[in-house]
Design a protein around this nucleic acid. Sequence first.
DNA 1: CTTAGTGCACTATATGCATAGTACACTATT
DNA 2: AATAGTGTACTATGCATATAGTGCACTAAG
Lengths: 117, 117
Amino acid sequence: MKFDVNLPIWLQVMDSLQTDILTGRLPPGSKLPGGRDLALNYGINPNTAARVYQELEKASLCETRRGLGTFVTEDLERIARLRHELALTTLSDFLAKMARLGISREETIRMLTEEKG
Amino acid sequence: MKFDVNLPIWLQVMDSLQTDILTGRLPPGSKLPGGRDLALNYGINPNTAARVYQELEKASLCETRRGLGTFVTEDLERIARLRHELALTTLSDFLAKMARLGISREETIRMLTEEKG
DNA sequence: CTTAGTGCACTATATGCATAGTACACTATT
DNA sequence: AATAGTGTACTATGCATATAGTGCACTAAG
């Protein structure tokens, strides 16, 4: 994984895990890698990896049990709601950015429809 | 203007000015505020403001003349091309983010069409 | 010539991020 | 009891960011 120099690494790794949790690629209740393993996986420092799990816990997406590890929350309702909210803010941020570039919603939708994928 | 804590201030101010330049709200050849005034406008430090103009010059969006000030480039072709490129990457980043959330392009377009504005 | 506005080059301090390394406490397994 | 894996808490260093303040060189206008 390559990191954006202008954003904290812990935030970028956190976003990555968060997305996997919200989409179910990391199922509720499943165990995440240990802090030291997570550091190895992403090529970062164990301290930075620990920060990732602390922030995920703050966001109520994980639960940490000392001596056992960190686990994906089993609060399905929270997962679903967060996924929906993230989709909405992503969408509205995108529209705002295009509007600031002077591109209307109609034109945006047109570009989106014709864009190659 | 409120700043995102996780991004350098100079980058956020630079983005703001860049957008104004690309859309013509800051016309080619026009004079930008002096470094000290820019600092006052945004409530930031003069050193940080200076950094903004240095980066805008690196991006070939401004030209700085010692003792005179900083001016928007008159290279219309470059402005147009950068605006187009920025729109395309914004669009493709957006689609990628939605895809990572498990939302297809069709569904994305549907949300976009129905979203209130 | 003087003045005001400007870019630019410094010094210095404080903070957050990321790194490296060490140590300790808890849990389950053997 | 011993071990391995885990979270947690430290110290320390280096770097970028952001702040504050000072001074100097250049330009245009009075």
